[in-house]
C-alpha cells in the first residue's frame, strides 16, 4: 500500500535510527512511503499551548499535503505526532467555520484541508491495514524467548475518545499483539501506559527522570529484555536520558529500548546493526546477543539464561 508518510522531527534528528529503520522495514511489508518532506513539526502540543490556531494551521498544512498525494492514508511513526495531530484534527473536523478560517491561512500556498483524513501511527497501520496474520506470515526470525515490554507513550493511548479506542478497536492492546505476532513474549509491568516524563525534562528534570527511571526499573523487575516504543520522544527519555534516570532512581538500569520498526525489522530478518540499534545510548546487548544466537542457530534460550544470570 502507498501511504503519505510523516516521519516527524526527532526521527530525523536525535533518533535517526527510527527513520532509517522505518525506511528499511517498509518495503518488507509492501508499504510504499511517500514522504511528506515539506511538512512542518506537529508542534508536540507545545505550539498548541502557545497558539492553538498556529498549531492547527501547521497540521492542517501537513494533512493537506498528505491529501494531495495518492497515498491511501497518512502514516506517522511518532506517538506524539499522532496525539498532537489528532487533537488538531478533532477541532478542524468538528467545526466548518473554524476549518475555513484555518484553510484561509493555507490559501497562499494553494493548499486546502478537507475534513476526514485518516492518519495512523505505524502501530495502528500494522494491525488494522496489514493485519496480524499477514505480519506473522512475514516473520523470518520469530522473537522466541525475547521478553519485550511494551511502552505505548501517552499520546497514542489517551484520550480514548479522540483516538478512537474502544472494545472494537482496542488500540491500547496493539503493541501487545504485535509483539506476540512477531513471536516475542510480552512483559506486562506497571509502566506500560505511563508517561516517560519527556515533556517536562527542561522544567522539572528530577520529576521527568524519576518517571523514566521508575518505568525502566519496573520493566527490569519484570525481567524484560528490552522495551519497545512507538514514540521517539519516549525513546529520548528512556534511552538517551537513561544514565541520568538511573542516577535519579539510584539503581543500575541498562534496559535497551527499541523503536517499533526496529523490533519489527528484527523479526523480519534485519540485523541489529542494519536497524541502527548500535546507535542507542543504552547498548541493546541482550537483543544483539539474542540476534547473534538466533542467526548462529545456537540455543535460543540464551537470552533468558543470560537475563537470569
Amino acid at each position: 500500500m502507498r501511504v503519505a508518510y510523516w516521519p516527524g522531527c526527532v526521527s530525523r534528528g536525535f533518533t535517526p535510527e527510527l527513520h532509517g529503520s522505518m525506511a528499511k522495514v517498509a518495503p518488507l511489508l509492501d508499504i510504499e512511503l511517500i514522504e511528506l518532506d515539506r511538512a512542518a513539526c506537529c508542534g508536540a502540543g507545545v505550539i498548541a499551548e502557545h497558539n492553538q490556531e498556529l498549531a492547527d494551521t501547521l497540521n492542517a498544512r501537513t494533512f493537506a499535503l498528505a491529501q494531495r498525494t495518492d497515498g491511501e492514508l497518512m502514516m506517522n511513526i511518532c506517538s506524539t505526532c499522532q496525539g498532537a495531530q489528532s487533537e488538531c484534527q478533532e477541532r478542524l473536523d468538528a467545526n466548518t467555520e473554524y476549518r475555513e478560517r484555518v484553510n484561509q491561512n493555507l490559501a497562499d500556498e494553494g493548499l486546502r484541508y478537507e475534513k476526514g483524513l485518516t492518519n495512523k501511527n505505524f502501530l495502528w497501520l500494522l494491525v488494522e491495514e496489514i493485519g496480524l496474520e499477514a505480519l506473522r506470515a512475514r516473520v523470518k526470525r520469530p522473537l522466541s524467548n525475547l521478553r519485550v515490554g511494551p511502552f505505548y507513550g501517552c499520546y497514542i493511548v489517551r484520550p480514548v475518545d479522540r483516538l478512537g479506542i474502544d472494545s472494537e478497536r482496542p488500540r491500547d492492546r496493539y503493541l501487545h499483539w504485535v509483539i506476540e505476532a512477531l513471536g516475542g513474549t510480552v512483559i506486562d509491568y506497571a509502566g506500560v501506559y505511563k508517561c516517560c516524563g519527556f515533556p517536562i525534562i527542561t522544567m522539572n528534570k528530577q520529576a521527568s527522570l524519576a518517571q523514566a527511571g521508575r518505568h525502566l526499573g519496573d520493566a527490569l523487575d519484570a525481567q524484560a529484555d528490552c522495551l519497545v516504543v512507538p514514540c521517539p520522544l519516549c525513546h529520548l527519555n528512556l534511552d538517551m536520558q537513561q544514565p541520568g534516570a538511573a542516577k535519579v532512581v539510584g539503581r543500575d538500569l541498562g534496559m535497551p529500548v527499541l523503536h517499533l520498526p526496529q523490533l519489527v525489522g528484527l523479526a523480519l530478518g534485519l540485523s541489529p546493526k542494519e536497524l541502527g540499534m548500535t546507535k542507542h545510548i543504552v547498548k541493546p546487548t541482550s537483543v544483539i546477543d539474542w540476534s547473534t544466537a538466533v542467526v548462529a542457530g545456537t540455543d535460543d534460550t540464551a537470552v533468558g539464561a543470560r537475563r537470569v544470570a
Binding site: A4, R38, A64, A66, Q67, R68, T69, D70, G71, E72, L73, M74, Q82, Q85, S86, Q89, E90, D93, A94, E109, G110, L111, R112, E114, K115, G116, L117, T118, N119, K120, W124, E129, R162, L163, G164, I165, E168, R169
Partner: peptide, 26 residues
C-alpha cells in the same frame, strides 16, 4: 467526526485514492 482515523466512518479512506486530491501548485 473521525479523528486520527479513529472512527469507523473513515472506512472510505481505505479506498484507493480516498485521500488523494488534485495536484495543486507546488
Amino acid at each position: 467526526e473521525a479523528t486520527g482515523g479513529g472512527q469507523r466512518e473513515t472506512a472510505t479512506a481505505a479506498e484507493p485514492n480516498a485521500q488523494g486530491r488534485p495536484e495543486s501548485v507546488g
